[in-house]
Design a protein around this nucleic acid. Structure first.
Lengths: 198, 198
DNA sequence: GGGCAACTTGATCAACCGGTCAACTTCGTC
DNA sequence: GACGAAGTTGACCGGTTGATCAAGTTGCCC
């Protein structure tokens, strides 16, 4: 693997960026099972070059996921300075729903002290701040926490992965929240006759 | 592949059921990448027996997904006869969220005239009826259709699969609905001072 | 219980995967 | 422009996968 202590040579730095971009596209197109060979092909380098930049496939994924987390953290922190707490949270959810990828899953529960975990914690902190502000403004329910939203973003991805150790009760809670979104707004409610109407 | 014209021999019928059960468990435990060899082991038969019952891995998955669709259709139709339209829809969503698996995805958009597609259309029809009843009772918004709910059930799974041809606007609509579920209920709303409060 | 079709099986195949390595090429420096 | 370090490469490895097939076994009907 190329040492990270010394700055990369010009061609190596270029190839690294090409590889990250190619891997991003390939993972987006074919999911986490995209092969290293295909990624190398797309980047226009040999397969062995991939392993000279990243020790393993997992490490390549970690680099990409780390970038996702970092980008979302930037978005969350920027939205924290906006005027409208409700729009800020809504905008972030929209952004995050598009930004979270399948491979990000792998590192959501990781608790080693890797760089990815650090970036994930940064993101979690920024999201919590967004939610705290929205809660203080009364635009989300009192019991909603930053962790809730952080997990809610990823819940769809979690369910899809058929994660065996996912807490069913937790998902039921999110299920109920989503169902709440289906209820009619107050303005749409027609006056209903009481059950004992003759 | 074993002919479907003639009834199966007793041992073959037993093995087919064992295989379907084993495949269900294996896919649930390891996702869609579970190997045919593991499935055969779990069922207690040789790997070649799997291919004597199902022409390919895809066909085995199709058989399982077909069963899922059929089971959910039964649930939806049963709930259609219950007294409470709101509880019926809610119960179905809960049931469906647990019933839909990763591998079901593959066949949601399939439009060939296979047996799976037929079963999927049956399910879609039953869900639409459930939603129509709920809408008529005023417990879901007027603009929610059966197709909406049918897709909403699968949306989490869809997003996770990073389906490249998913309509972003469609997902944004569902995103907005889910976000609605986060809004405070009327009872929780504290009286807010108007913006021009001195 | 004999005979035959239906079914099962272990051996085997080609394709593909992540990963390694020694030989080669290229960049940066003096 | 030459030299050494840094980076790249194609060939290759062990392992796994979905799928095949001839040979053997089993259930079923007369």
């Amino acid at each position: 693997m190329i040492s990270s202590a010394r700055p990369l040579r010009a061609d190596a730095a270029r190839n690294r960026e090409l590889l990250l971009a190619a891997a991003e596209e390939e993972f987006a197109a074919r999911g986490i099972d995209a092969s290293i060979a295909d990624i190398a092909d797309r980047a226009g380098v040999a397969k062995a070059t991939v392993f000279s930049h990243f020790a393993s496939k997992e490490e390549l994924i970690a680099a990409i996921v780390g970038n996702h987390f970092a980008e979302l953290t930037v978005v969350a922190r920027r939205l924290l300075t906006s005027a409208d707490p409700e729009a800020a949270l809504s905008d972030f959810l929209t952004e995050a729903a598009h930004g979270i990828k399948q491979q990000d899953l792998t590192f959501l529960r990781a608790d080693d002290d890797s760089r990815v975990t650090e970036l994930r914690n940064d993101l979690h902190e920024a999201v919590s701040a967004l939610v705290d502000r929205a809660r203080a403004a009364g635009v989300v329910r009192a019991e909603i926490t930053g962790t809730d939203v952080f997990l809610l973003i990823c819940a769809p991805v979690h369910i899809a992965g058929c994660h065996p150790d996912a807490d069913p009760d937790l998902w039921r809670r999110y299920q109920a929240i989503i169902f709440d979104g289906l209820r009619p707004t107050r303005a749409e409610l027609l006056p209903q006759p009481p059950p004992s109407w003759p």
